[in-house]
C-alpha cells in the first residue's frame, strides 16, 4: 500500500481521476486527450472511465480551448486544460495572461477563475526549439497566476489536487522527461493534498544550500549523494511553486550554510532563479553568505535539435557537481 512507485504520468492521472470523482464540475479538455490518451499518455484511460464530455477532445485551437475553459470556470465548472506542449501556450496567451490572470483583481473580486492549465515543458527529447522551452518565468511574471513546477510523482499528485481546489488560475508545468520515471518516494493513496506555496526541503546538509526546480531537482539530488561521499553535505530545496514563492526554508538554510547555488533548466536571462537570488540579497540572511552566489541555467539560446547540441544547452549533472564542489572548496 505505502510502496506504490508510480510514474509522474500515473500520479497526475490518479489526481485527475480523484478530483473528477469528487466533484462533477471537474472536467479535462485538450488536444488528443481522449482515445489517444494524451500526447505523453497522461490522461491515459480517463476517457474510458469518464464520459467523452468530461474528457473533452478538442480541435487544434489553443486560444479557443483556454478561452472556453475561462468561460466555463466563470460559470461554475472547474476545467483542467491540457496544452500539448508548453510552447503552444503562446497561442493562448491572451486568455491566460490578459483574461484569466486579471479577472478576479480587475473586476473587484466579482468573479474568479478556478482553472488549471497543465502542460509539458523542457528539453531532452530532440524535438527542437519550438517544442522544448521552459516557460515558468513567462507565467511567474504575470500577477494573478499561480505557477507550479513539480519534480516528482508524489508531489505532482498532491499539488495537482490542490491546484484543482484552488479558486484561481494555476499553471502546472510538467517536465516531459519526468513523465515516465518513477520517483524516489512512493505515492500515497487517496486524496492527498500538498498546499501550493510551500517549499520542500529534500535533504539537509551544512555546507551548501542548493535550490533547484523541476527536473533539476533530480539532477541536483544525484549530486548531493555523490558529494556526500566526498564529505560535502548539501541542503537541497525544491520550491515546487514558483509563484507564490516560499522563501523561508531557503533563507533559513542560507543562514546555516553560508553558500547558495541555484539551478534551473530554462535560460538564465530573466530566469526564475534570479528572483530567488534577489530575495536572498534583500534579506538579512544575505549577511550570512561566505561565498558569492552561484547560478546555473540553460544557455540563452533556443533549444537545438542534435543531441550533442541539446545536451550542451542545459545544465547536466556534471555541471551541477562541479559548481557545488567548487563553491564549497573555494570558499571556506
Amino acid at each position: 500500500m505505502s510502496d506504490r512507485m508510480l510514474t509522474m504520468a500515473e500520479a497526475l492521472r490518479e489526481a485527475m481521476g480523484i478530483a473528477m470523482e469528487e466533484r462533477p464540475e471537474v472536467f479535462i479538455l485538450g488536444e488528443d486527450i481522449g482515445i489517444y490518451g494524451g500526447a505523453f499518455g497522461v490522461t491515459g484511460d480517463l476517457y474510458h472511465r469518464f464520459s467523452p464530455l468530461r474528457v473533452l477532445d478538442t480541435p487544434i485551437s489553443e486560444l479557443g480551448i483556454v478561452g472556453a475553459a475561462v468561460g466555463a470556470a466563470l460559470s461554475g465548472m472547474r476545467p483542467i486544460v491540457e496544452i500539448q506542449f508548453s510552447d503552444f501556450t503562446a497561442q493562448a496567451m491572451d486568455q491566460i495572461a490578459n483574461q484569466a490572470a486579471k479577472i478576479h483583481f480587475m473586476l473587484g473580486g466579482a468573479l474568479h477563475v478556478p482553472l488549471v492549465l497543465r502542460t509539458p515543458q523542457g528539453s531532452g527529447t530532440g524535438a527542437a526549439a519550438q517544442h522544448s522551452q521552459n516557460l515558468e518565468t513567462w507565467f511567474a511574471n504575470v500577477p494573478g497566476l499561480k505557477v507550479v513546477v513539480p519534480s516528482n510523482p508524489a508531489d505532482a499528485k498532491g499539488l495537482l489536487l490542490s491546484a484543482i481546489d484552488d479558486p484561481n488560475p494555476v499553471i502546472f508545468l510538467e517536465h516531459k522527461l519526468l513523465y515516465k520515471i518513477p520517483g524516489r518516494d512512493p505515492v500515497p493513496e487517496g486524496a492527498i493534498r500538498i498546499p501550493l506555496g510551500v517549499s520542500k526541503v529534500v535533504r539537509t546538509g551544512k555546507d551548501l544550500t542548493l535550490v533547484a526546480t523541476g527536473i533539476m531537482v533530480n539532477k541536483a539530488f544525484e549530486v548531493t549523494e555523490k558529494l556526500e561521499a566526498e564529505g560535502i553535505s548539501i541542503t537541497l530545496i525544491d520550491p515546487r511553486t514558483i509563484s507564490p514563492l516560499d522563501m523561508s526554508p531557503i533563507l533559513e538554510s542560507v543562514e546555516k550554510t553560508g553558500r547558495l547555488l541555484v539551478v534551473q533548466e530554462g535560460p538564465s536571462h530573466g530566469g526564475f532563479i534570479n528572483e530567488v537570488i534577489a530575495r536572498v540579497s534583500e534579506s538579512s540572511s544575505f549577511g550570512s553568505l561566505i561565498a558569492p552566489i552561484k547560478r546555473l541555467a540553460g544557455m540563452n539560446i533556443p533549444i537545438p535539435y542534435a543531441p550533442q547540441l541539446e545536451k550542451a544547452a542545459v545544465p547536466q549533472v556534471a555541471d551541477i557537481e562541479v559548481a557545488a564542489r567548487n563553491l564549497v572548496k573555494e570558499w571556506r
Partner: peptide, 16 residues
C-alpha cells in the same frame, strides 16, 4: 542526423 552540413547545421532537425 545532426550534422554540420545539414540545412540548419543540426540545430533545427526534421521540423525546421
Amino acid at each position: 542526423l545532426g550534422k554540420k552540413i545539414g540545412y540548419c547545421g543540426g540545430r533545427g532537425g526534421s521540423m525546421h
